[in-house]
Nucleic acid binder design. Structure first.
Lengths: 155, 155
DNA sequence: ATCCTTTAAGTTGTGCACAATGTAACACCC
DNA sequence: GGGTGTTACATTGTGCACAACTTAAAGGAT
């Protein structure tokens, strides 16, 4: 008879809890720039897109694909960022189904204030670079397998 | 000049996304027994406590400590499980600040229907047992470090 | 052109998470 | 034993996540 695995040894539980604690440790740093963690993820993608090939704005669809989020989550989140005047939302004239997200001056300027955060967070993790990479790649593999699984179930 | 790390390579993002996808893959299995993932975690702890040393019920505090959740999350969640008649909530007579959670017959019976879930989930991960353990222990280490960090900040 | 399907975004409703605050019971200390 | 601080739980308000559905535009195919 196989002994039952305790919840503390389940991968799902450790991912779930580590993710939440990670967000908690991020919170004070993000508070300084007035963002939540999901908002920070969106802004990070927009900072990267800015200065890219003929940047006419990023679609909601593109943000959703990269962050694995749907419009039900993104639309209200983007509206809040718009209310903070960090970005604008505008229907594409080329394809009126799309909404294009563009950083405002204020949104662009926020990037500088966020630059120290990744390094500060890495220090909080108390890991060597080697184990950081090893653990991250492990989680990445799980993410990839789960993503495959979700996609194959959709068909 | 250090190149900026893309969000897809950040540990936080991979934990956040892997955790959410894990819950998505769990969802159809949990739907069969009528639970959400956090509810399943609570029930799992209660199933384990049952049959323990003189089980007079588990306190909300104890559930919160094990799951890293506070009463703001647990109280409404437990009320929903109570409304489903899976458990009862009763003030302790010994210490009236405490609320004792006890499984109902229906709650106890649900355990059998959940027994196949861990193995089914393991298969969905598409990992060897060795890499499963390696990845899980990596995430566990991150969790432990983050927990230390959160605690030292509280002082 | 007309129908049919697909796609992008928005809306609604439910259930977490969590900060901040409130309330009552217990613990301690002089 | 009365004041003081601590603890356990509940409440309120905000912001995700996500399922289910709606709306409107675009893409075919005939």
């Amino acid at each position: 008879m196989s002994k039952k695995v305790s919840i503390e040894d389940a991968l799902c539980f450790n991912l779930y809890t580590a993710s939440r604690l990670m967000t908690q440790v991020y919170r004070p740093y993000l508070k300084k720039i007035g963002l939540t963690y999901p908002q920070f993820l969106v802004m990070t993608l927009l900072w990267k897109a800015k200065g890219k090939d003929s940047d006419k704005g990023t679609t909601v669809k593109e943000l959703g694909t990269r962050l694995y989020l749907d419009s039900g989550t993104l639309t209200p989140l983007l509206k809040r960022l718009e209310a903070m005047e960090l970005l604008t939302r505008k229907r594409s004239t080329h394809d009126e189904r799309e909404v294009l997200i563009t950083l405002s001056r204020k949104g662009i300027n926020l990037e500088k204030k966020s630059e120290s955060i990744p390094m500060e967070m890495f220090c909080n993790l108390n890991l060597t670079m080697d184990s950081f990479i090893e653990i991250r790649d492990g989680v990445k593999e799980v993410l990839a397998n789960l993503h495959d699984k979700v996609n194959e179930d959709k068909n």
